[in-house]
Write a protein that binds this DNA or RNA. Structure first.
Length: 276
DNA sequence: AACAAGACCTGCATGC
DNA sequence: TGCATGCAGGTCTTGT
């Protein structure tokens, strides 16, 4: 269920367990979104983890020897720390064991997730990385950048901010939440978001993502202790999943409340009164 | 060139 | 209970 905040929270949870540790990988199923590199386990065996970065929704586990283990959680991917004698299930596809006897499990029922091993120098040109747009929390992603990205775009503003070639990390939930916060209708054409609307959107995107990361970070320690899972947390959304409920920010006076529509085959939630 | 639709998978909630 | 349907937080590929 990961968008950028969940992936970032996984990164922060994983880092203290893996940084500086030697790791051994076991692949229990070769076919995730695409086939795993066949020699993945062998090439990683016993290498030390130097650090973990994030680019878009990809985790980049940096290994000694100029290798990077790329991990994407897809729709249903989860990372958990489990005891080494914990029984493994049918969807526990990849196991990472450390030299201090910890075990990390990558669990992904739908198998839209992926894992790849690339040389550090080749990473920027990796086919899945090459076309990615701005990091939304990077200061370089500002109003002027958004203006350039949206100019001439005829798709909806929601489709635009979910387009990973423009800005990364914003998935279906946080697209809805950011547009709500910026009071912009998700149906509006991207190119029509200019002026005062555009000036609200960049801060809104940064704020919803930052708030969610903060919420994940604050719950992470307890959550790890409870279940072993890293990076999943209860988070309250203003509009996502709240069709029919009253708009939390205005008194619309309409009985319908938060409206649900379909855009690009995905559910969109918004307040038609507040968002224009 | 830009956009929408289809594809990939499984699990879950709902309704008959 | 069984079965069909629709839905789910992603994104690459295909088709118009």
């Amino acid at each position: 269920m990961p968008e950028l905040p969940e992936v970032e929270t996984v990164r922060r949870g994983l880092l203290p367990m893996l940084e500086g540790r030697r790791i051994w990988i076991e692949t229990r199923r070769p076919d995730l979104r695409f086939p795993l590199p066949p020699d993945l386990a062998l090439r990683c065996a016993g290498r030390t983890v130097l650090g973990i970065d994030r680019r878009a929704k990809y985790l980049m586990i940096r290994l000694e020897g100029d290798l990077v283990l790329m991990l994407h959680l897809g729709m249903s991917g989860r990372i958990a720390m489990v005891p080494t004698d914990h029984p493994l299930g049918p969807h526990d596809h990849v196991i990472i064991d450390t030299d201090d006897d910890r075990r990390i499990v990558f669990h992904d029922p739908r198998r839209f997730g992926m894992l790849d091993l690339v040389e550090t120098g080749a990473l920027p040109m990796h086919r899945l990385i090459r076309h990615l747009g701005y990091e939304p929390l990077d200061p370089a992603f500002d109003g002027a950048a958004l203006d350039r990205l949206l100019a001439g775009k005829r798709c909806s503003i929601k489709a635009a901010i979910m387009d990973q070639r423009l800005v990364v990390g914003v998935g279906n939930i946080y697209a809805c939440e950011a547009l709500f916060r910026a009071r912009i209708s998700p149906k509006r054409s991207a190119a029509s978001v200019v002026g005062v609307r555009a000036s609200r959107l960049v801060p809104a995107i940064k704020a919803v993502l930052s708030d969610a990361i903060a919420a994940g970070g604050s719950s992470l320690r307890d959550y790890v202790q409870a279940s072993g899972e890293l990076g999943y947390f209860q988070h309250r959304f203003a509009v996502y999943g709240r069709a029919g409920q009253p708009c939390p920010a205005c008194d619309c006076g309409q009985p319908e409340g938060v409206r649900r529509i379909i855009q690009q085959g995905r559910s969109t939630f918004y307040c038609p009164t507040r968002q224009r």
